[in-house]
């Protein structure tokens, strides 16, 4: 079986039958590249996504909220690690992945370039940002690359707590004083549009979608996922008396979906291009954490080497 055409036929047949592709299987170079781009972007998003919420750990309003927020941010770290681990099976090292992030070759979700201004933002992020992420991740559980799919199954099991704790924060604020309710509404106003942008450009302009769909990495389009999220969220906002900041939002009986207003894609593109409020700060913090940790990793390596030598000498003696 030396013939590459034969390899490709086997690969295509597996995809067609809905089988999974495993790391050592033959795969088209473009499939590998697409996966590295997508999985690393996803992993970086989890890790960079720790910053906006980490910002509030010391200022959580109660011990309960603090314990919850700590656990949530720790989960984001865990999710980043599952995804790096899946990505590394494609033959790229963690150092290379970090370097791509630092040079801007790899992206992370542009939502994390928005600042977290008040405690209500912790509610809005959990409810909306994690809510939007769940819609995407549920679909990705069936992605054709085995390690990616398995990481997603694990992540989806944990993610529901993230959304519920956020919605709970919003519920409490919305039922609180006028000032607390205003905080919740303000957070919703600022996070709503960036959240629905998270699904990516409209299908008519999405340049990565065709291959991803053909290879069954993605099984639903950006617009389909976005619609699903909006349809689910409208009722949740109504229930706690908050108003989604979109005057064009209304139920369309014929479509069986909510219609929604024009998304400001110029803003989306501008934030991706580096002009968001926090782009520089987020990357600078990540680079600093990597550099500051360098001596710790060097010390751990030296200790491991020394201990291994000691154990070897004891065996000889």
């Amino acid at each position: 079986m030396e013939n590459p055409i034969e390899f490709e036929q086997i690969f295509n047949a597996k995809i067609a039958k809905g089988e999974f592709i495993e790391p050592k299987d033959w795969m088209p170079e473009k499939y590998r590249k697409t996966l590295i781009r997508q999985i690393s972007q996803h992993a970086h998003s989890e890790i960079i996504g720790m910053q906006p919420e980490g910002n509030f750990i010391t200022r959580a309003p109660s011990l309960r909220r603090k314990a919850v927020l700590l656990a949530k941010v720790q989960d984001e770290a865990g999710h980043g690690l599952y995804l790096y681990s899946a990505c590394e099976t494609l033959g790229i090292t963690r150092d290379e992945l970090n370097e791509q992030l630092h040079t801007g070759k790899a992206k992370y979700s542009s939502i994390f370039n928005y600042p977290t201004l008040t405690w209500a933002d912790m509610g809005a992020i959990g409810w909306l940002v994690d809510g939007a992420a769940i819609i995407n991740q549920v679909m990705l559980q069936r992605a054709s690359f085995g390690p990616y799919s398995r990481a997603m199954v694990r992540i989806c099991k944990e993610e529901s707590f993230h959304q519920r704790q956020g919605y709970e924060i919003m519920c409490v604020l919305a039922k609180g004083t006028a000032e607390q309710k205003a905080l919740a509404q303000d957070a919703l106003n600022r996070w709503w549009w960036p959240s629905i942008m998270m699904f990516g450009p409209p299908d008519s302009e999405s340049k990565n979608s065709a291959d991803s769909t053909r290879w069954k990495i993605k099984r639903e389009t950006n617009d389909e996922l976005r619609q699903k999220f909006i349809d689910r969220t409208v009722g949740q906002a109504d229930f706690i008396g908050l108003v989604l900041p979109d005057k064009d939002l209304k139920w369309n009986e014929a479509r069986g979906h909510y219609d929604y207003g024009q998304i400001d894609w110029a803003e989306f593109n501008s934030v991706i291009a580096g002009n968001g409020a926090c782009n520089k700060q987020r990357l600078a913090h990540h680079i600093k954490a990597q550099e500051d940790g360098l001596w710790v990793r060097a010390a751990a390596n030296a200790y491991a080497r020394k201990k291994a030598e000691k154990e070897k000498n004891m065996l000889v003696a």
Partner: peptide, 24 residues
């Protein structure tokens, strides 16, 4: 099989594995 971790030695590998793959 749950996934993988990076670690300098076996003790660190066990602790990282616990923190990464067994938080619940």
């Amino acid at each position: 099989h749950a996934g993988s971790v990076h670690a300098a030695d076996k003790e660190m590998a066990l602790q990282n594995a616990r923190d990464t793959y067994s938080r619940r």
